[in-house]
Design a protein around this nucleic acid. Structure first.
Lengths: 259, 259
DNA sequence: ACATCAAAACGTATGACGTACATAGTTTTA
DNA sequence: TAAAACTATGTACGTCATACGTTTTGATGT
């Protein structure tokens, strides 16, 4: 009854594992296999064949060890995945510190987006608590810097950072999975086929707004929502992020005026 | 070689399954078991014990059928999950059409957020392509309406809708998973413990901005980022969404002035 | 140099999973 | 009534995470 089966969620274990704070007992052979090596191998496997191919057996094979040897260094696959996610995230980009906070934020967004392009499987890693890995924290820190210099105070900056992180994550999940699909085999259900198939389902009575938008995009009326102020951002993100930054700027300005 | 193993991604199948366009052959016994029944049972299981408990055997047991019977109505578990996700999403909320687009958008955001609270497992369902289920489309349509009346044109409204959907999804994923953890067993690693444990890891040299924000929030300096203009939205969302809406409003106003 | 012994590595085993396949059963049409 | 078309079931296979018991290893205390 006490053990609700429930995944451990052992925060302590997660932390020590993520931060490599191994206690290293005194006796016995020094481990030739390390958590870092295991995580690296896992990243290699996921990069090659996706997250669903990332089995303990596969990782062990990659390293030339037996499956169960891995469990001498990590307590479970779930915990390993946390480490893997942090390792795969890598260090955050260096941003321009030249005062233009919009530019810096856009750089950060672009870098995170690019990361998800490079490793789509990162989006499939189930996250079981707020990010606490060294790299995850570094990414967060890098985003907070321009937000703070822009004039946001603690709580606001935190909220804005959450907003931006969520946008990139969510947008990537929603828009990107299609890409993986068409590459799979020769089946040509590209964007065109989907658009066509959908068009027949969108009953203008049931979905008036959707039909209107769809119609507008099919004809030449595509009033391009890109732009901003020039610097490159993926189309899926630019409009939303730019509007958000407009709002943040206005907020800061209003605060300054107000006192 | 041609079959890259790759999951089917059979768009046609997905569509006909999602839209219940069963061809219903002429001969043979009328099926007593339907896709809808299976999906409902699946939702029941996921609601009760989470997505990881959602096995074909479990669904079959729930319905009193053998495991393999399910495969007479659905081609694979992946496809079933698509249907389940759409069913579980349910119909979108009715929004105020009283001209206040901000209010309507906030209502929508709040409803989606509430949905993810009610069914956290929806966030774990892997999405393999853009939403094409009836309910998913209905949600999208409902969001597009206030955005269009606000003055956004086709592509902009689409981008804004994507932005908002992504924000809610992403924010829910990032902030919410913690909640499930503490409920599991008696282990008391609540927010407090995590905050404490983290505090020791946040080296101000390595993470200056993060440390600053953290410090500001620990002392009484919590300049609350909530507010907006009063209507209830979850704290995690309100600041970001309100800033975004500010930006959208300004954008529309600028367009109106510009011609 | 040698004995000690914790830790590393390995092999085997278990139970759950998705689903291919062959079979048996049932109802509608010809 | 016979055949066709479809549903339901049971068995079987391969893969998964991981518990457990055994063997191997090599740094430490003597």
């Amino acid at each position: 009854m006490a053990t609700h089966d429930s995944k451990g969620h052992d925060l302590q274990r997660s932390l020590t594992l993520l931060w490599a704070g191994r206690s290293r007992g005194r006796r016995g052979p020094r481990p030739k296999l390390t958590v870092a090596q295991i995580a690296d191998a896992a990243v290699r496997v996921a990069d090659a064949d996706g997250l669903e191919a990332l089995s303990m057996q596969r990782i062990a094979a990659e390293l030339g060890y037996s499956t169960m040897s891995l469990y001498n260094h990590i307590p479970s696959k779930d915990l390993l995945l946390e480490v893997v996610a942090d390792v795969a995230a890598g260090p955050p980009p260096e941003l321009d510190g030249t005062g233009d906070f919009r530019h810096a934020v856009r750089q950060w967004v672009g870098a995170l987006w690019a990361g998800f392009q490079t490793r789509p499987w990162l989006l499939r890693v189930p996250l079981d608590h707020a990010p606490i890995g060294p790299n995850q924290l570094a990414w967060l820190d890098r985003l907070l810097r321009p937000l703070l210099t822009a004039g946001l105070v603690g709580g606001e900056a935190r909220a804005a950072a959450l907003h931006l992180t969520a946008v990139v994550r969510g947008t990537a999940q929603i828009t990107m999975d299609m890409a993986g699909a068409q590459a799979a085999d020769g089946s040509p259900h590209n964007e065109a086929e989907l658009a066509h198939a959908l068009a027949e389902l969108i009953d203008p009575d049931a979905y008036p707004a959707l039909a209107a938008v769809h119609a507008a995009e099919t004809t030449g009326d595509r009033s391009a929502p890109e732009r901003g102020d020039g610097r490159a951002l993926p189309v899926e993100l630019s409009f939303g992020v730019d509007r958000f930054l407009d709002g943040v700027e206005a907020w800061v300005a209003a605060k300054a005026r107000g006192g």
